[in-house]
Amino acid sequence: MTTHATSPTPADIKRWRRYLADERAEAAVYRDLAGRREGEEREILLELAEAERRHEQHWLELLGDDVGRPLRGDLRTRLLGWLARRFGSVFVLALAQRAEARSPYAGDADATPRMAADEQVHEEVVRALAARGRQRLSGTFRAAVFGANDGLVSNLALVLGVSASGVPTHVVLLTGISGLLAGALSMGAGEYVSVRSQRELLEASSPNPATNSALPDLDVDANELTLVYRARGMAPEEAADHAREVLSSLEAYTSDFPAVRPAPDGEDEHEAIGNGWSAAVSSFCFFASGALIPILPFLFGLTGTAAVVVSALLVGIVLLGTGAVVGLLSGASPLKRAVRQLLIGYGAAAATYLLGLLFGATVG
């Protein structure tokens, strides 16, 4: 049984009881997450829960008869548990990663070095699990965040700049709607061209399946197939050995020449980059959803300074939200990322507002 060198003080007992509650809550989070997963990820999460149970036992032994009534985990851990039970998503894993990184055990003499080391390793385990989810949604998430953010910032800057020049409200509204449509169409068209160009480049680089039919007629001594493998990056000797192997057992290698290495998720490279039209529509919608926010006050009849202030406030709230989400998914501080997003957006809008004031004063 674990013992304490001296009689524990009331502060010690209070701290240990808090650690005990947190360990129990964290174990429950991992069990809840495991309940929404299968296979290897489920096993890993259950192992993490078991490790937290071992840590729980350490504090139980130290507390002895002073364990008292069970406490609730801290607010962050309880929030994690609520999210895990309802969503079980990469966002929860990203939050769990940050929670593991905040472990106080390294600086607490009552926690064993093994426990402190466990918590450090747990952070890396959760980081790896979260990375799987980040990889799965990275493309869609990038398009959503950057498309919406472009719409927010560009249209807020446009609306504020035009409004500052002193033009009537209906002109500001018309400008905002034009900016929404122009920007969304430009984003959609650009995404379509980008995806189509990438697919065409891949198609041009993919081996031609018809070349298979030429294999039986190749000159074994000259062995042109060696050049193919060298062009693919093999060393000369390795390429020659592989070519001889292919030619000596053609039936077993009928698909060797045109084979395209599949993507990690089982799709080929063409499927992994998506469809041009779906990418275009998604980009259009993401940009438009962001660009709509700055013109909402004008659509609902607000005018002048009131419309500008409300527009800026609405955009600020959304920028804080998108920045916080980016922070969560990247394992960084949601607050810092939210403030950074806000400052960048407001900085661009302020610059165009000042230019609008200057332009209005000059024309006036």
Rank of each mutant, 00 (worst) to 15 (best):
residue 194 S to P: 11
residue 196 R to M: 11
residue 168 P to Y: 09
residue 175 T to R: 00
residue 186 S to L: 04
residue 177 I to Q: 08
residue 198 Q to K: 08
residue 177 I to C: 10
residue 180 L to K: 02
residue 162 V to T: 03
residue 177 I to E: 07
residue 189 A to Q: 03
residue 185 L to W: 10
residue 198 Q to Y: 13
residue 182 A to Q: 02
residue 180 L to H: 03
residue 173 L to Q: 05
residue 175 T to A: 12
residue 187 M to C: 06
residue 188 G to F: 02
residue 181 L to G: 10
residue 196 R to E: 14
residue 199 R to N: 01
residue 174 L to V: 15
residue 197 S to T: 08
residue 172 V to P: 01
residue 171 V to M: 01
residue 191 E to L: 05
residue 177 I to Y: 01
residue 170 H to V: 12
residue 180 L to E: 08
residue 185 L to M: 14
residue 159 V to K: 10
residue 166 G to S: 05
residue 182 A to I: 02
residue 183 G to F: 03
residue 167 V to M: 09
residue 179 G to T: 03
residue 187 M to A: 05
residue 187 M to K: 13
residue 183 G to D: 04
residue 172 V to G: 02
residue 185 L to N: 11
residue 169 T to L: 05
residue 164 A to E: 05
residue 196 R to N: 13
residue 178 S to G: 15
residue 162 V to Y: 00
residue 166 G to K: 01
residue 169 T to G: 06
residue 198 Q to N: 14
residue 196 R to C: 09
residue 166 G to N: 02
residue 183 G to C: 01
residue 193 V to K: 11
residue 191 E to G: 01
residue 158 L to R: 03
residue 158 L to E: 09
residue 167 V to D: 11
residue 194 S to I: 06
residue 157 A to D: 03
residue 176 G to E: 12
residue 191 E to V: 05
residue 186 S to E: 12
residue 184 A to R: 12
residue 197 S to C: 03
residue 179 G to N: 05
residue 184 A to Q: 10
residue 189 A to F: 12
residue 199 R to Q: 11
residue 175 T to E: 06
residue 157 A to R: 05
residue 189 A to K: 03
residue 162 V to H: 00
residue 163 S to M: 08
residue 172 V to W: 02
residue 174 L to Q: 15
residue 177 I to K: 12
residue 160 L to Q: 13
residue 182 A to W: 00
residue 171 V to G: 07
residue 167 V to A: 14
residue 198 Q to D: 15
residue 189 A to R: 05
residue 170 H to A: 14
residue 200 E to L: 14
residue 180 L to M: 14
residue 185 L to H: 13
residue 171 V to A: 12
residue 164 A to Y: 00
residue 196 R to I: 08
residue 177 I to L: 15
residue 191 E to I: 04
residue 168 P to V: 04
residue 163 S to H: 15
residue 159 V to Q: 09
residue 176 G to Q: 12
residue 165 S to H: 04
residue 166 G to F: 13
residue 177 I to F: 14
residue 177 I to R: 07
residue 179 G to M: 12
residue 192 Y to D: 02
residue 188 G to E: 04
residue 169 T to V: 15
residue 165 S to V: 12
residue 182 A to K: 01
residue 167 V to L: 14
residue 181 L to I: 14
residue 157 A to T: 09
residue 174 L to W: 15
residue 196 R to G: 15
residue 191 E to A: 04
residue 157 A to V: 13
residue 186 S to K: 10
residue 166 G to Q: 06
residue 191 E to F: 01
residue 157 A to W: 13
residue 179 G to I: 06
residue 198 Q to I: 13
residue 190 G to R: 05
residue 173 L to C: 06
residue 198 Q to W: 11
residue 184 A to F: 08
residue 167 V to F: 13
residue 159 V to T: 15
residue 174 L to I: 11
residue 184 A to V: 15
residue 179 G to C: 07
residue 165 S to R: 07
residue 174 L to D: 15
residue 183 G to N: 07
residue 195 V to P: 00
residue 187 M to L: 07
residue 170 H to F: 07
residue 183 G to R: 04
residue 195 V to C: 01
residue 169 T to H: 03
residue 174 L to G: 15
residue 187 M to R: 08
residue 172 V to C: 01
residue 172 V to D: 05
residue 181 L to N: 01
residue 176 G to R: 14
residue 199 R to G: 08
residue 158 L to W: 07
residue 185 L to Y: 06
residue 175 T to S: 15
residue 160 L to R: 12
residue 177 I to V: 10
residue 171 V to F: 05
residue 168 P to N: 11
residue 187 M to N: 06
residue 164 A to I: 02
residue 175 T to K: 00
residue 183 G to I: 03
residue 187 M to V: 01
residue 171 V to S: 12
residue 170 H to S: 13
residue 165 S to N: 13
